[in-house]
Design a protein around this nucleic acid. Structure first.
Length: 246
DNA sequence: TTCCATGTTCCGCA
DNA sequence: TTGCGGAACATGGA
């Protein structure tokens, strides 16, 4: 379930379990999960090393291992699992790291939309892929958000989901932000007055998701009693309240 | 069997 | 140049 808050949690999970253990063996079970790097290079460059430091930007996780960085993207169904007993190997493990102490870390991904790769430098990656600011970055202020949005036009939902605008928001959290702020997902960004409310709500939800938006068409809105509607906006199934979201 | 899925990218069109 | 809709990717679950 990977949007920013989930990827942040994977980062903490990685830090808690898989740092500073020597990598004894790298098992690439399905090469389709790899990005640029080929299987033999991937294995060779990590074997004997240890992961030392985890960094996240938007939905991307970067883990330092000597002079290289492991890059993880979770796609729709990516997951991370640390375990000691090989019998616990998850069903769709695509890459498994075996550590010297007998423990394992698996990247599990049923649909294979995720990516496991090696990169030289996260900052270069972020720049090259034109990723926007991370909502959890303490230096990302309301004034920065206002400046950014002033340069853009188009529907607010599509904009908030654009990783080059702000990195890390996906379908569910954008719906949540618009529900909380009472904004219709198709409203033009340039017509929104209260940008600070979006900024504040975005930061709040990404820190502590509340998942209050009902995801059933026809249900009554707990906020205003309006009817929950379902539509396709920016190419994604969207739930919003026909009552208070304008 | 059919539809749908918390993501990204590429293409054609306006 | 920007934004948008649609399709593609791969696979299982309801």
């Amino acid at each position: 379930m990977p949007e920013l808050p989930e990827v942040e949690e994977y980062g903490r999970y990685f830090t808690r379990h898989a740092l500073n253990r020597t990598i004894k063996r790298v098992d690439v079970r399905d090469e389709r999960i790899l990005g640029i790097v080929r299987k033999d290079a991937f294995t060779r460059r990590l074997r004997g090393r240890a992961f030392t430091h985890v960094r996240r930007h938007g939905k991307h996780l970067f883990v330092q291992a000597g002079t290289t960085w492991l890059h993880l993207h979770f796609g729709m169904t990516g997951d991370l699992l640390f375990y000691r007993d090989a019998a616990e190997t998850p069903r769709f493990a695509r890459v498994i790291f075996d550590f010297n102490d007998g423990s394992h870390l698996a990247f599990d991904d049923m649909r294979l939309f995720g990516v496991v790769d090696l990169i030289d430098d996260p900052d270069t990656f972020i720049a090259e892929h034109r990723l926007g600011r991370d909502p959890l970055d303490p230096k990302f202020k309301a004034a920065d958000f206002r400046k950014l949005i002033a340069k853009r036009r188009g529907g607010i939902k599509a904009l908030l989901m654009s990783q080059d605008f702000v990195a890390g928001l996906g379908n569910l959290y954008v719906d949540e932000i618009l529900y909380e702020t009472g904004i219709h997902p198709r409203r033009s960004a340039e017509k929104i007055k209260d940008l600070d409310a979006i900024y504040t709500t975005m930061r709040k939800i990404v820190r502590k998701p509340n998942r209050k938006l009902p995801r059933d068409e026809g249900e009554l809105c707990p906020k205003c009693g309006g009817t929950i509607k379902r539509a396709v906006v920016a190419g994604r199934t969207t739930y919003f309240c026909g009552g208070h979201q304008r």
